[in-house]
Each structure stands twice: as C-alpha cells, then as structure tokens.
Amino acid sequence: LLHVPPLQNLAAAREETEQVIYSTLENLFECTNVNPRDIGILVVNCSVFNPTPSLSAMVVNKFKLRSNIKSFNLGGMGCSAGIIAIDLAKDLLHVHKNTYALVISTENVTKNVYSGDNKSMMVTNCLFRLGGAAILLSNNVRDRKRSKYRLAYTVRTHTGADDKCFQCVQQEDDENGVTGVCLTKDVTFVAGKTVKANIRALAPLILPLSEKLLFFVSAIGAKVLKEKIKLYVPDFKLAIDHFCIHAGGRGVIDVLEKNLGLFPQDVEASRSTLHRFGNTSSSSVWYELAYIEAKG
C-alpha cells in the first residue's frame, strides 16, 4: 500500500488494474511475436472489480484489437475464474477456426482493502495480493510446433447449489457498514469437497486402467459392505506429473494434499507461490506453473 490510509477510489483501482494487465500483455506479445489484431477471442476475468467500460473493453481500446473480436468479461467468479476462462476460450476455439484466444486473469486489491474490525473479513488483507497472467491459445495448425502445451481436458464442477459452498466466500458489509470479503471456516472443507467431486469427473479421462479397476472394485465393496471397506484413493501421480493447486491459503493446500494423497514435493509449487506472492486469486495457478518451469 502506497497511501495511509489506502486510496480506495475508482481511479486508483483502475490504475492498479491497468499496470498489471498492460505490462503482462506487452510482455506476451513481445515473447510470442503475435500481432494484437490477430486475436479473435478475448476473455478477461476479475472477480471484485468490474467497472464500466469493462476490463475487456479497456484491453480492446489499449491494444486496438479488431472490431469483430469475440470479447467476454467474467466477474464475481472468485479464484476459479482463471480456469473457467480457459474452459470458455476452449469452447469458443471449437467454433471459430484458425484464430487466437487471449485469456487474462487478474484480481484487484485496491477496492477490497478491508478497514473494519471483523476478523473473518480481515483475513483477506493478509492473504490476497495483486497479480495477473495472460495466456494465449491457438487452434491454428501452424502454431503446433511452437506451442508450449496442448490443452487436453477441462472439467468443471459447480457446487453452488449447496448453501455451505455458496456462502463460504462472500463480499458483504460488516455490522458497521464497511464492505469486505468474508471467508468462513467452511472454506477448507468446501475446497476439499469440491476437488473430490471434480476429481471423480476427471479421473476416468486420465487414470490408467489399473487404477480405474481398483477404484471401481473398492466402490462396489464399500457400497455392499457399508463402512467395512475404505474407498480406494487412486494414485493420480501415475497420470499427472505436476500439480498446480490454487494457493488459496495454507489450510486449503493442507486439505488438498491430504485428500489427494500427495507428498510435500507435489505441493511445493503451491506453497512457494503462496509464500512469495500471496493469494493472487485466479492467476495463482499460472504463477505455480512458472515455478515448475523454472525449477525444471
């Protein structure tokens, strides 16, 4: 924070977002040697800062993107919005051929510094930090050789129908009318529950046949014999080389490490990202991927 008390006006929030997004995109275009006017799809996500004009319109204006671009601005979707944006971009690339999709994930701290005394809302001041990432996707065959990765699967699991899940992270006013983001004690439980549901959907797509059979047998046994047989937890390390678990907080990482049967080295990228950058919300997984790439 550069000001005490902190500036929380719209101009300061917009300046923060511009600094993050513009510098990130300038670096991306320089590294990829892609002309901004070749971008056909744009998806920008920021959970708690959604001004008018939108952040996606801000990017179009700054980099003079073409007039027929498919532009989307995702708001209020929390820390998972970065992967949701990738999923949206993937679906759009199935429809629009030979083009680029640009995904920008960021979060704004300026407008969400909590100045009250509610402990559940003060936690966000300690955890969250500004950050951003830009990801360029292509469905053009010519880009196959120079692409870093191939997007194989995206699996989305929505648990918002459950009240506990819906209310675990909520922007609201405290008893004195001060606005902030409230994190309930259910956050770690909800994170573990949601990841389990997501893994159940993802597992059939990536696990080897041997692990699928073991899980199937244990599931049948557990159903027949009730609690006498413990449900088998598949060894996901047989299908996944690296794990980028959202750096939401130490408690969240601990729960997921335990539930997935991972070792400390499997969550090293998450813990290191949290320690160095804090919780950068939807962009955190890309910081973790950069850590893994740098480590080799």
Rank of each mutant, 00 (worst) to 15 (best):
H3K: 15
V4K: 12
N9H: 14
A13R: 14
A13K: 15
R14K: 14
R14E: 07
E15W: 12
E18V: 14
V20G: 00
I21T: 06
S23W: 04
L25C: 08
N27E: 07
L28M: 12
C31D: 05
C31H: 13
C31I: 14
N33D: 12
V34Y: 03
D38G: 04
L42F: 07
L42E: 12
L42C: 08
P53E: 07
P53K: 13
L55Y: 04
V59F: 01
V60W: 06
N61S: 15
F63M: 13
L65Q: 13
R66F: 00
S67T: 13
S67F: 02
N68S: 14
G75I: 09
G75E: 07
G78I: 12
S80Q: 12
A81S: 15
G82F: 06
I84F: 03
D87F: 08
L88S: 14
A89E: 10
K90H: 14
L92V: 06
L93F: 11
L93C: 11
H94V: 11
Y100W: 11
V103H: 07
V103P: 00
I104M: 01
S105E: 10
T106E: 04
N108P: 01
T110W: 02
V113E: 00
Y114T: 15
N118W: 02
N125R: 07
R129L: 01
G131Q: 05
A133Y: 07
A134D: 10
A134M: 02
L136W: 10
L136H: 10
S138M: 04
N140W: 02
R142K: 15
D143W: 02
R144D: 02
K145F: 01
K148I: 13
K148C: 06
L151E: 12
A152T: 15
R156F: 08
T157C: 01
G160N: 11
G160C: 09
A161H: 14
K164H: 08
C165R: 15
F166W: 11
F166M: 09
Q167D: 09
Q171R: 14
Q171K: 13
E172F: 03
D174G: 09
C182P: 07
L183F: 14
L183G: 10
L183T: 15
L183V: 13
V190N: 05
G192A: 01
K193N: 01
K193V: 00
T194S: 08
A197C: 06
A201P: 01
A201R: 12
L205I: 02
I206H: 04
I206P: 01
S210M: 04
K212L: 09
L213A: 08
V217F: 08
I220C: 03
A222Q: 14
K223T: 12
L225G: 04
E227N: 12
K230R: 12
K230P: 00
P234M: 07
F236H: 11
L238K: 15
I240F: 03
D241R: 09
F243G: 10
H246P: 05
G249C: 01
G261R: 06
F263K: 15
P264Q: 11
Q265A: 06
V267W: 00
R271H: 08
L274D: 04
N279F: 00
N279I: 10
S281H: 07
S281L: 02
S281F: 02
S284P: 10
V285Y: 03
E288S: 04
Y291G: 08
E293G: 05
